[in-house]
Amino acid sequence: MSDTALPRPPQATFLGGAVLVSSVMILLLAFDRTSSLGSIEAQEEAQRFVDTQGSWIGLTADGWQTTLRILCIVAAALSVVTGYLGWRVLQRDRGARLALSVLAPIALLAGYAVTALLPGVLAVSVLLLWRSPTREWFDGKVAPVPDRRPGRTAQQPPAAPSSPPAPPAAPEAPARAAAIASYAPPPQAAWPHPYQPAPAARAARPGVVTGAAIVTVVSSAIVLSVLSVVLLFVLGDRSAFEKEVADELASQPAYGDVEASSVTGVLIGAVVLCVVWSLAAIALAVLTVRGSNGARIALVVSAIGAALVSLVAVLAVFPVVVTCACIAVAVLLLRGDAAAWFAGRKQP
């Protein structure tokens, strides 16, 4: 966010307000939708959906309600983030606009589990943030004002009146001209110059940036340690682990056709992906502390994505801690003082 004060266009105010209001409405409707799941009406609706559209993938009514509950939780969490980002958009935060653009497709898909209209309003509003004159406002420019007169595209200032020609200079005396020609200024040091301002001191790194990096490194290191233990446990005796998975699948009639080896392979792939993700988050935290604005935006997107992934197991204690840590990192890095510090480092 730039320190330059520019008047906010009405389009930017409307779009930022639309993102904020639609996020609040989705949050309220998500809570209402979650509380209604499990009722007789919701079970009948889920059964009708399974009979018409979900039978070809082997989905049951209880499984569909569980999927809806997860989508409602994800939509509620996303609405909190998008609401905050919508408020930051009104402050001309370019990072918030970029984060909204990344989250808009996910919010659109998850929001359809809650309502059909508001997620579309949010996605369209985010898309229009990249159009003129809002785009020029974010770039720190003033959009050209159209002129009503034909043949002109912008208001042109009137030409300044031409000044009369200066009178010719009087010839100088020969002695004075020779003195001026032989004059040499005394040598001066290159610095400091009495009329040259001193270079501005670089602003100190805000504590919120350091705090976000510490939270990222600590939480990623904990997740990395836990997942490494899980990976070693599975790979240490894979046959025994597959036997336990097969016994568990056999006790569930709905998953009788699922093979234990496939479940084990998916689990190993997911653990390896999360390990790589944790290492990348630590690297982004280091680059963020060093002042990379691109790393800051990437770390915000990574934190929001990790929070959404951890919400799948929201009933457990450890994923909830990871979710809170990820949300804290995203909020700290999107604060105004952090954005101003990163913007100041771009200036020479």
Rank of each mutant, 00 (worst) to 15 (best):
A12K: 11
T13F: 08
T13A: 07
T13N: 13
F14E: 13
F14Q: 13
F14V: 07
L15D: 03
G16E: 02
G16T: 05
G17Y: 10
G17T: 10
G17F: 11
G17P: 08
V19G: 02
V21C: 06
V24M: 11
L27Q: 10
L27F: 14
L28Q: 14
A30L: 03
F31M: 13
D32W: 08
D32S: 14
D32P: 07
R33W: 02
R33I: 01
T34F: 11
S36I: 12
S39T: 15
S39G: 15
I40T: 14
E41F: 12
A42G: 01
A42F: 11
Q43I: 06
V50R: 03
D51F: 04
T52C: 04
T52I: 09
T52D: 12
T52L: 14
Q53N: 10
Q53M: 12
G54D: 04
S55Y: 12
W56Y: 13
W56I: 04
I57T: 09
I57Q: 06
G58P: 11
G58T: 02
G58Q: 07
L59R: 14
D62P: 11
G63S: 05
W64C: 10
W64K: 07
W64S: 09
Q65C: 10
Q65V: 08
T66G: 12
T67E: 15
T67F: 10
L68E: 15
L68T: 09
L68S: 09
R69T: 07
I70M: 09
I70S: 07
L71A: 10
C72K: 01
C72Y: 07
I73A: 00
V74P: 01
A75M: 06
A75H: 02
A77H: 05
L78G: 12
S79F: 14
V80T: 07
V80S: 05
T82M: 12
T82A: 00
G83S: 05
G83F: 07
Y84I: 12
G86E: 04
G86V: 06
R88N: 08
V89E: 10
V89M: 03
V89A: 15
L90S: 07
Q91A: 14
Q91L: 08
R92C: 06
D93F: 02
D93W: 04
D93E: 06
D93N: 14
R94K: 08
G95H: 09
R97Q: 10
R97H: 08
R97M: 14
L98P: 03
L98R: 08
L98M: 12
L98W: 07
A99I: 05
A99V: 05
L100R: 08
V102I: 07
A104W: 11
A104C: 00
A104Q: 05
A104E: 01
P105F: 06
I106D: 05
A107E: 00
L108F: 10
L109W: 03
G111R: 02
Y112D: 07
A113K: 01
A113D: 00
V114M: 03
V114Q: 00
T115R: 11
A116C: 07
A116H: 15
P119C: 02
P119T: 01
V121M: 15
L122F: 02
L122G: 03
L122Y: 11
V124D: 10
S125L: 03
V126M: 00
L128S: 04
